[in-house]
Computed example of a mutant assay.
Amino acid sequence: MTRSLRLSSALLLACVIAPVHAVAPEDIRKAECAVWQRELDFARSVAEHDAVAFAEHLHPDAAFGVSGKPTRGREAITREWAGLIDGTALVLRWYPAVVTLGGDGRTAYSSGPALYEDPKTGAMRLGRFGSVWQRGDDGVWRVLFDDGIPPQPADAAAVQRFRDGEGAACPAA
């Protein structure tokens, strides 16, 4: 069998086996806005120091800090984030700037700015986050992967730009 024929056969088999998930444009927008809101709710769980709500946003097998040495699992992540959730180690705020639904309709990517404040000194730093969300069989979106870029010192103008972006509505709505 020639390489071309083997490749064609493999592609044909993949197309037959793989389910087709055509997602209508209105369903894409609806799902992206659902993830947008879920991301805002996730950030609110930290702002309100609610460890239970924080954990409810995590996939049981989530991995955080995926570009380095990841922390794996809902319980381990919640433990590691305890000082952020209660605000003693760091005051962290973030919001989505973009949400994109994957072709399967069950996976989405969200990204946006993050503001880090040292609770002792008040020093502000800005970074960005990126999260992969997965919709469970129960219809609830949960974070599966999370990471970010290291924050950099932020001046008053940069902090104000962050604050000006808070509360933006889902652009897909």
Rank of each mutant, 00 (worst) to 15 (best):
T2C: 08
E117Y: 07
R79Q: 14
I28F: 14
D41K: 07
A47I: 05
E56N: 13
R106L: 15
I85C: 00
H49N: 14
D104S: 07
V20S: 14
G136P: 11
C170P: 09
C170L: 12
A123F: 02
R93E: 07
D138K: 03
E26Q: 09
L126K: 01
K30G: 03
F64A: 07
H57A: 15
I17H: 00
V23F: 10
R163F: 04
A82H: 09
A47L: 11
A34M: 08
W81L: 02
Y116N: 01
H57E: 09
Y109W: 15
A76F: 10
Y109L: 15
G165E: 06
A154N: 07
A10T: 11
G83Q: 00
A89G: 14
L92T: 01
S111Q: 08
E48Y: 05
A51F: 06
A63N: 04
V20G: 12
R128M: 03
A172E: 10
P151G: 05
S67I: 06
F145R: 15
A14K: 01
D50Y: 13
D118E: 06
A123V: 04
I17G: 03
D118A: 03
R135C: 15
K69E: 15
A89H: 06
G103R: 00
W133A: 12
A89K: 05
V91D: 10
E75A: 15
P19N: 07
L12Y: 12
T107G: 02
D147H: 04
R163C: 03
S4C: 06
D104W: 10
T2D: 15
A97Q: 15
L58T: 07
P25M: 06
L101D: 03
E117I: 15
L90D: 05
H57C: 14
G139C: 08
V99A: 13
A168Q: 11
Y109C: 08
L92Q: 05
M1R: 05
R29G: 07
T71H: 10
A34V: 07
A172K: 06
A172I: 01
D155Q: 00
E75F: 01
V66R: 01
E56V: 00
V16S: 13
F162D: 11
R38F: 00
S131C: 06
I28S: 06
V52Q: 14
